[in-house]
Design a protein around this nucleic acid. Structure first.
Lengths: 215, 215, 215, 215
DNA sequence: CATGAATGAGAATTCATTCAT
DNA sequence: AATGAATGAATTCTCATTCAT
């Protein structure tokens, strides 16, 4: 007796792929394992996604779309510190809701699959533009390579690092860490805002005292 | 006429593995490709390392040993700010000298290979102890989960993130970025020190004003 | 709005199959490709023909029926040379009008599909009877294995060879050869008649001089 | 206990491929069946030939090389009739010794495999040059499309047709036809020579009487 | 130490066909 | 009559590893 509606099958493949890719990496997951976990015939995978790479593409696109939505909801008038806090809270929200999706989309090494390289480039360029507004707002110089190198993807990365570590730990121990609850992430956001705000301020003040030119 | 000494063959395999694993990920690299790049017979790979996983193990061990050496050379008497700066400089030195080695060792997802999970756990635990000294020195509370969550692996990760991005870019574009020279990394270290020091200070001061306990 | 009548769908499948089988061979063509080219749902193919082999069967039957019709219209009273010329013209007409159909029906290797073997045998035996009349008319001995070996399927094959070569060339170069027009085939038929008539005569005369028996 | 020398394995694959491709066609033969018939591990097939297409390539090259050797041994001073007879005898020798090889090489439809198209083109062009000498010797006009269309590949094709039919019959009935022995082929060669010689003469004489121009 | 042949399991994908709608 | 989802077997090819030389 088939209980699947059409939509189910594709979604089941997608979900299983996100989970497995996040745990083992794209290349370590075979489509047979994937089909088994998704409880789906392995040919369906090609039927819906055109191949294994097609699934990865859809994961990457979905992740970046949600990521972008999470970020771009910061268009109100805010003080720099509020701005930072809003970005951090959005990031945390996004990563909490999409931990494995984000890990797959942002961590998968793609240098052997040209299509994925292109896709990552495309999204990477799109993201840079989003950061510029924040950078300008808090007084950082978008043309200073050193500053950009430090802060480009900084907040996303530091938060991603937290979730990567948490995920790794939970996978390795097969135990969920209940400590990481709402209360924790409130504190986390507040402290990270403080840290980032003070850190940036220290830099901006120093630069204003001793201006320097960069090629 | 072959000029290979014993050491050469093993080293050639190791070097090729570091490069290829860094670019494509562990599972995406086949031993035939590896042997071809290393200009070595593919059976030699099993002879010297006992298998593909053996190579990864050796890479992880080598990376963590060098990483540890780089960190533990900070046993002199230093002010907190000097301490931070020293750690940052050591990290940068380490990652500049061992970019691909570190990327393989720290980024390879291993949840399908029990031996690698164990190895990573072992090194992970060893590293935490190293951090405690720094945390204590700059006034952070090692028992506060939020603080630990932010700062655990923070410096290593923010620098690793830089090198991961740089490596990704260089691989994708097949061009070396000459901007990232000694002068750049001097500035980078200085600015990151300032950022970190001010950021931590902001937190410590705030906590001292409103102390709170965490399990 | 779909304008397909029932007959359309079946015919579209048949036509696409003839074209594709002629170009790539029966086994090299998948039913999905076939359905795509025919602009038809792939399930229709089973609905109308009972399976992929069913299409091939219908092609073979159609080809042999038309082939037989083309040949058997030579029942008038003719001189041997006229008889030969009539057969040649009929063959040419048939192959020009049904090039791909004939190529599929006569060239498809079927020794892995018992049903097709049987079908080919059936038509093969039917064709031999048709040749006997021609053979007797021009003085060839139907019981002489050597003569039969040379002339059995001779005319059909030499003409088929021409169309096979022409088709191959046109497919490989994606260009139609306009040289092969009505005028060309008139000359072709005339010259082939002459060649065949003189060739056969040389043999018949020689045999009459030095009669020989064959088992 | 392995009884294979190195050379055996490759040869066994080649031989099995020739037999199977001749019987069922290239695409109808799977590599697993091929490996089973050759009594060889199916991976060896890729090891030695780089893939299924690689085997076909080698078959085509081998066939054309032997074909060319068989033809080009006619460089003595001969009368036209002797020349024709020599070519016919060489063809028969070649096809008797290499029936299946030739059937695969000359009959395999390749319009879906670009590499094979190129290979066939290459050999096709090479063969045309060989024919020119014979054509000139017996008085045919190499620039007359009609004549070339009739005689291009004529002798090879009429003999190939014989062997194709014989092979098909023997495969379908699973019985060898012992009638086709040395004595038969001597007669066959003689009669075909006579047929061809008289047929060509009829054409040449007719053309000399009523010369015509062709574009 | 080094080689190239060999192995058997597994990779991703496509196959012809069936079935409920 | 027609559709699109589903199936399970089959496809070619590659995998990491072993072994005799």
């Amino acid at each position: 007796m088939k209980e699947n509606t059409r939509k189910d099958t594709k979604q089941k493949i997608f979900d299983a792929a996100v989970t497995l890719f996040a745990r083992k990496g794209f290349h370590a997951v075979g489509i047979r394992e994937l089909a088994r976990v998704a409880e789906v015939n392995s040919a369906m995978l090609n039927y819906y996604f055109g191949g294994k790479i097609g699934i990865l593409k859809e994961i990457i696109n979905t992740a970046h779309q949600r990521h972008r939505e999470a970020i771009t909801s910061t268009d109100e008038q805010l003080t720099p510190k509020q701005h930072i806090n809003r970005v951090i809270c959005n990031f945390i929200r996004f990563f909490r809701d999409n931990t494995e999706l984000a890990l797959v989309a942002f961590d998968t090494l793609p240098y052997d699959i040209p299509e994925i390289i292109e896709l990552k480039k495309k999204w990477g360029e799109a993201n840079i533009q989003l950061l510029e507004k924040l950078f300008a707002d808090i007084g950082l110089d978008i043309n200073d390579t050193v500053q950009v190198s430090i802060f480009n993807g900084f907040l996303a990365n530091i938060i991603l690092t937290h979730f990567r570590g948490r995920h790794a730990w939970e996978q390795a121990t097969h135990r969920k860490i209940h400590e990481f609850n709402d209360a924790f992430y409130e504190q986390y956001a507040e402290m990270l805002t403080r840290f980032y705000f003070n850190g940036v301020n220290g830099i901006v003040q120093h630069i204003n005292k001793t201006p320097q030119k960069k090629t």
